[in-house]
Design a protein around this nucleic acid. Structure first.
Lengths: 255, 255
DNA sequence: GTAGCCTACTGGTCAGACCAGTGGACTAGC
DNA sequence: GCTAGTCCACTGGTCTGACCAGTAGGCTAC
């Protein structure tokens, strides 16, 4: 302990203080989603700063997904409910600049998807099961009409709906958001490969069968079985796209 | 298919196009971390927009963690390496507004930590093991000098260093970042409870023993054992802070 | 009663100005 | 020759004032 510890003085910009105050109001619940902020000209009076300062603050808040502003709107900026788009954005950035490999994404997803179904086996309701069944029906429909690009997209949307229902049934919002984000990132990496796969018809059929097996396991309350099925499915889906070392690592997670 | 599909025309703001171009340059690697952007006045010429537009674009890029600008810097804004602070920020927001419970965080962390050690058992090098051992020594040191608030903080820092080394050994950057973020969020939720715990001395001692067990398992290459130890440790650490239903869900993940 | 216009707002953008801070060039002193 | 100090060109941060296009609600004329 050598005397008083000085901290570097950090110039705190005016717009940062504006951001802080509004952010605090939103996160503390003083401003709820759907409510409106005062107009920029009103805010510049309340904070006694210039309009450019207000605007920069609003830009930051918008980038964080807290508010949205529309030109011409007679009301001010709208407070938004939380949405994972910012999380998705930063995770996509992480994937791009950190060069996340497909294998790392697959590991992450395999583990979290398996956890989601394990939890869902305990907590699922009939409504959840019905939603999953409906999603599987959509997958069948997309598979029945043909196997063009639109159908592959529809199949993917139904698949997402299925996993979303599972994640909600599991009751863990963090897992729900993260698996959703990673699914989107991975879809961006392999979508064209999948759409052009010559055996995509067989793949889709096996996918439907797999999801039905999972629903059956969830209905029976057999979490470990559902988790095993999910892990195996993830492995089967991506192992073919991975180099040998990443494939081995993924296999190690199968248990 | 009913005729051409019209998309809603979205007014694309000028600053958004500026953001896009710079973002693309950064993510594609045309601009590498440490490089400098031109000054705002130079950018406003290159993009032929006003300075406020340039500034709003830079604010957005700064909020996304891509650049940083300092007043008075004769160079322009600096391109930053990826850092998980934005990810952490949005996950913290998720935790606050979505009311993520401690149980959800614990589930997430238990599963990912266990995965990290499982992978680390396969891929760990002697350097990784040495780093982990050093972190454990730091934990011992923090525990030996006393049990004040500063020592608890030091203990936590060493604990973070340990888990960071494990995650790096596992080779999955996504898991590394996510566990780090969640650890920070959870620490914010329970730190005061932990610092005031009357039995924190015993807790810290058991923590040291646990981490040494994990290192031994990793050295032996026994991933499943290391994973089991990790899960159990997470459960023991947080079960006491959870309501009954969340505790039961967490126990279900122990396997 | 309704279609259309009018108007008072909104946010988006620009131009220009000033300030405080930075860092490099330049210079005076040793 | 080298250092300490000054100076200056330039930076980002902020404010002012202005204009435009878009929106919504009220008003008017049919």
């Amino acid at each position: 302990m050598g005397g008083p510890r000085f901290e570097p003085v950090r110039a705190v910009r005016a717009y940062e203080r504006v951001v802080e105050q509004i952010e605090e109001a939103v996160e503390s619940g003083a401003l709820t989603p759907g409510e409106r902020l005062p107009s920029e000209r009103e805010l510049m009076v309340q904070f006694s700063v210039g309009r450019s300062t207000v605007r920069e603050a609003l830009r930051v808040l918008q980038a964080r997904g807290l508010v949205r502003s529309r030109p011409g709107d007679p009301n001010g900026a709208e407070v938004l409910p939380f949405s994972p788009v910012v999380l998705k954005k930063s995770m996509t950035t992480l994937a791009r600049v950190s060069e996340l490999s497909l294998g790392e994404l697959a590991q992450f997803r395999m583990v979290l998807d398996a956890t989601a179904v394990l939890l869902a086996a305990r907590l699922r309701t009939e409504e959840h099961l019905a939603e999953m069944a409906a999603a599987v029906e959509d997958m069948k429909a997309a598979g029945a009409t043909g196997f063009g690009a639109a159908d592959v997209a529809g199949f993917g949307a139904a698949d997402t709906a299925f996993h979303d229902a599972v994640a909600r049934a599991g009751g863990n919002k963090l897992i729900q958001v993260c698996t959703d984000v990673v699914r989107a990132v991975m879809a961006g990496l392999v979508e064209d490969r999948l759409a052009r796969a010559p055996d995509r018809e067989a793949l889709m059929r096996r996918g439907v069968a797999h999801h039905e097996d999972v629903i059956a396991a969830l209905r029976a309350g057999d979490g470990p079985l559902a988790a095993r099925l999910t892990r195996q499915w993830t492995y089967d889906s991506y192992a073919g796209h991975l180099p040998a070392d990443e494939r081995a690592a993924l296999r190690a997670l199968l248990e």
